[in-house]
Simulated assay, not measured.
Amino acid sequence: MDRASQTRAAQLLHHRSAGLKKGDPISLPIVPAATFHLPEVAGASHFYGRNGMTTWEAVEDQLALLEDAPCISFPSGMAAISAALMATLKVGAKLIIPADGYYVTRVLSEGFLAPFGVEVVEIATAAYAAHDFTGASVVYLETPSNPGLDVIDIAAVSARARAAGAVVIVDNTTMTPLLQRPLDLGADLVVAADTKAPAGHSDVLFGHVAGRDAALMARVKDWRRLSGAVPGPFEAWQVHRGIETLELRLERMCASAHVIAERLQAHGAVRNLRYPGLEGDASYQISKAQMQGFGFLIGFELADEARAERFLADCRYIVQSTSFGGTHTSGERRARWGDKVDPGFIRLSVGIEPLEPLWSAMEAALNA
């Protein structure tokens, strides 16, 4: 990570320090309040729990430091995605989404937005580079794509989309703002599932929307207040604690992922490996230009479904899970969710285990 990212990581650890008084707790208190003392409304810092709570406002302060932009928190990544789309779309709008991105975004768009009169257009992530955005209201992109790990030039796509009059939303879940900064590259809004690496411990759902356009962010905040899609105080506290170690965890996860990707690529049982940090990867040049690191996700194929399932079951240091970004290395065969991938395709999320024991377990499972 560059110096700016390291500075942001240091700032978020101390973002409450300046406001502490003698005897205050260093760790963030949990304030489980739905109602507040209101003898009169004027001048009150809080009115009602659906409008704001101190505990999740502290997480928003952390995320705002990382994003260098105002942030609004949500009880899940999909709640954040839904809010960003609801704040920017209306009847007759044209929405462009990745055909090979996170499948739940497609399900939401096809099952709910399209029936409400939104034209939903799905294109492959790689096709964004040359697509004509004329008539689009919202261009929604995900890079690296999940699970295929295709990468597109955020700055170039954002410039073309905004020139066509579209709002640009980037799902940055796979990279976090420490590794990739879509707002700096021209995006209007960033959405992310902080359930993944920011919280980091596979024990809480959370998400956020970030943006520098005050009007857009006001719409997002109104959606949260009116829809009631608000995070809870205990969940916010969990995320706040997790974010404090994000930079440290990412450093090991990314370093280990790079080595493991190289070793997997050299293994005879592995084919079609994707990792943006490998010089031979189709996404390497763009990734090198717009990322501060190459991430912790690896995609690869084994011979067939049975071989992939056996590998996952045999490796003692891989938990079989549908999420990623946690402390434990996790993997799953993505075709089971209907992703358009090979039956033997595995998405691997490298955790914080020491590298050599992790690799030894993976190698033994591959050789079994």
Rank of each mutant, 00 (worst) to 15 (best):
A197M: 13
L141G: 03
P177R: 10
V209W: 07
T143V: 08
I152S: 02
V151I: 12
P177T: 07
T134K: 09
L179A: 14
A229T: 13
N146T: 12
V151Q: 01
P177H: 09
V121E: 07
A229W: 11
I243S: 03
P231K: 12
G232F: 11
A193M: 09
T245P: 02
G148I: 12
P115G: 13
D194N: 14
H131I: 01
A161V: 05
L248R: 15
G232D: 13
D188I: 07
L246D: 01
E244C: 13
A218Q: 14
I169A: 02
A192Q: 13
E251M: 11
G186Y: 11
F234L: 15
I123D: 00
P233A: 15
P198Y: 10
G117T: 11
L248A: 13
T125K: 03
A210L: 05
L179G: 06
P182D: 10
E235Y: 13
L149C: 03
R224Q: 14
L183P: 04
V120M: 04
V209G: 03
L185C: 07
L178K: 03
R241H: 12
F234I: 15
A187E: 05
R224P: 01
N172G: 05
R225N: 12
D171R: 08
S137L: 07
D184Y: 11
V220I: 12
D132K: 02
G228V: 09
L113M: 15
D188G: 09
V151Y: 00
A197G: 04
A229C: 12
I243H: 06
A187I: 05
G200A: 06
G211V: 05
L226A: 13
A161F: 05
L149D: 00
S227F: 06
E119W: 00
A159V: 10
A193S: 15
A210F: 06
W237Q: 08
V151D: 00
G165E: 00
V168C: 05
G207W: 07
V118P: 02
G117R: 05
D194H: 14
L189Q: 10
A215V: 13
A199Q: 13
L246G: 02
M253W: 03
A210M: 03
G200Y: 08
L178F: 09
V120S: 04
K221E: 15
I243K: 05
H208T: 04
D153I: 01
A163L: 11
H131R: 09
A161W: 03
R212M: 08
L250R: 00
V209D: 04
R241C: 04
Q180A: 10
I154G: 04
A218R: 13
A236P: 09
D222E: 14
D184P: 04
G165S: 02
A163H: 12
E142V: 09
G200K: 07
A197K: 08
A187H: 05
S137D: 15
N146R: 11
V230S: 09
L189R: 10
T173E: 09
E244F: 10
L248E: 15
Y140F: 15
W237E: 04
T125I: 03
M175K: 10
D150T: 14
G200R: 04
V151F: 01
A166V: 01
V138R: 00
I123H: 00
Y128C: 02
